[in-house]
Design a protein around this nucleic acid. Structure first.
Lengths: 119, 119
DNA sequence: GGCATAGACCTAGTTTATCTATGCAGTGAC
DNA sequence: GTCACTGCATAGATAAACTAGGTCTATGCC
């Protein structure tokens, strides 16, 4: 069976949101769905994490928001990335790549090394 | 100039510690130094993070500890990984790889895609 | 001797970002 | 009518990092 969806590691959610918004404006609910899709179901974002994250981003002007009406008549809050948001995205993506590959370096020695413990 | 050392993303420190201890027993201070070395200076572990982490690991029996005397006569607390610790390491490393590659999938679309914003 | 620097351990309190749990409301299917 | 899904939001709990402090020892330099 497939694995349970995992939480986003603290610090990564804002980056993922910005990354999706860099493609096109989206409303909150769709952002969460899209993260789940794109991650192949590996990542699961709770609404209690999502909406506070969007507020943070709004406060620091990384995104703008606008209420808009869907075809079915429902009101949704649509978020767009700003110039500042794009700058933040680039920076955080670079930092993330550095950090995650550094971690990989540290943990890979062990896994893939069947000798371990024979020393 | 080289970048500032980054904090370990929450949730990864225990895994990195276990990974180093799977090679050989180490004392706390050395663990921190080794994480910095192995990451090429990318990761920096504060002592205020390290020692609480070692206590957590001890409490859940992922490591054992023993005071020992170095050649220079100084007392150090040396940690060794346990069977449970090894199991935890394998599990968390697998989960980490899943999660970090899922995140990569989400953010890579943007970076490396110079079209962005032309839409 | 005295002093600075590095090694080595530790704790208290703060911060941050997730979560759980809950609430509200509209839509569509049965 | 009721159940599931869409969609927004907040309050409080939790976890794990941080900052900032403290103690003690060894070593090298003047």
């Amino acid at each position: 069976m497939p694995h349970e969806p995992q939480n986003a590691p603290p610090g990564t959610l804002d980056m993922m949101i910005l990354s999706l918004l860099a493609e096109e404006p989206l409303h909150g609910y769709l952002i969460a769905r899209r993260i789940e899709e794109r991650s192949g179901g590996v990542l699961g974002i709770e609404e209690g994490s999502l909406y506070p994250a969007l507020q943070r981003l709004r406060k620091r002007k990384a995104v703008t928001d606008e209420w808009s009406t869907q075809e079915n008549g429902r009101e949704v809050r649509v978020y767009s990335i700003t110039r500042e948001g794009r700058a933040e995205l680039v920076e955080s993506a670079i930092r993330w790549r550095m950090v995650s590959s550094a971690i990989q370096k540290i943990i890979q020695d062990i896994k893939g090394d069947r000798r371990v413990k024979l020393a």
